[in-house]
Amino acid sequence: MKNRSLISINDFSKEEQIGILDLAESFEKQPTRKILEGHVVANLFFEPSTRTRLSFDTAVNRLGGKVIGFADTSSTSVQKGESLKDTIIMVSNYSDLIVMRHPKDGSARYASEVSSVPIINAGDGANQHPTQCLLDMYSIRKTQGTLENLDIAFVGDLKYGRTVHSLVMALTNFNCRFHLVSPPELKLPSAVKMHIKEKQLEYTQYTELQDVLPIADIVYMTRIQRERFSDPIEYEKVKNAYILRNNMLKGSKESLRILHPLPRVNEINVDIDDNPKAYYFQQALNGVYVRQALVTSILGVI
């Protein structure tokens, strides 16, 4: 994996993905080590994402590496109209690895073509966010003991949610069954469903959240955004239909865990936070270990 970029989850094979999860496990046991001393990681956030940036910062800092870069473009030459290409070439002179978040789809792939150092995509527009996908996989494996043969329910905006698309694609390598709960306007795109079928796996589409709770091993919640609806009345109709509350979890499996890429708005009621089935905060923390595994593998120090 040394010197490879990670732009899309499919850039890594199933075996390589598992390798990252195994390594992340060892970082969870021992997250503070001085193995990145002398290395410089550039964090370039062309659009702000405090959560993802802090996660990468923490990952590198705990390993003794240095972080340079910017949290938004307001005080940079990007604001003066510098092209992405020039920014990437300049920064690749100063760093061993670039982590980037950018509002345009495909920006990270392009950066990987012009950069002399590897790129980790921390989100390119609506396209890919592979480190989120890996931390989701890590969280599922950790809570269920396996990634194989699980019943995974995805709830909410399945049409536009890039984390859902990547995670579904990744899980088709592990023989999972997919339970897709969404309003009719926000169903999973047919290209992703086609991918499930190609792997000869099953998916079922639902409109009622309650229908999947008794069978699911994992419930992956997402936010439904108002701006996705052309008709505001349609939004009003569905906005409360996909809210998970504590009392709905009666009769669910003991081993069920609830995931959410965060930030949540109201789709998971706060009364679930103390339920042992709530896993979303731990899920976010797992992101640090997964990113430590990625950074050290790509820099070739492990």
Partner: peptide
């Protein structure tokens, strides 16, 4: 929203289907 429509980048596509012509962008996918 594809980066190729915002910077001077030559486009690259993989042809997924030749009959009804479906081109997959190598950048935004």
């Amino acid at each position: 929203n594809c980066i190729t429509n915002h910077e001077a980048i030559p486009t690259k596509f993989t042809v997924l289907s030749k009959d009804d012509i479906r081109l997959k962008c190598q950048y935004c996918e």
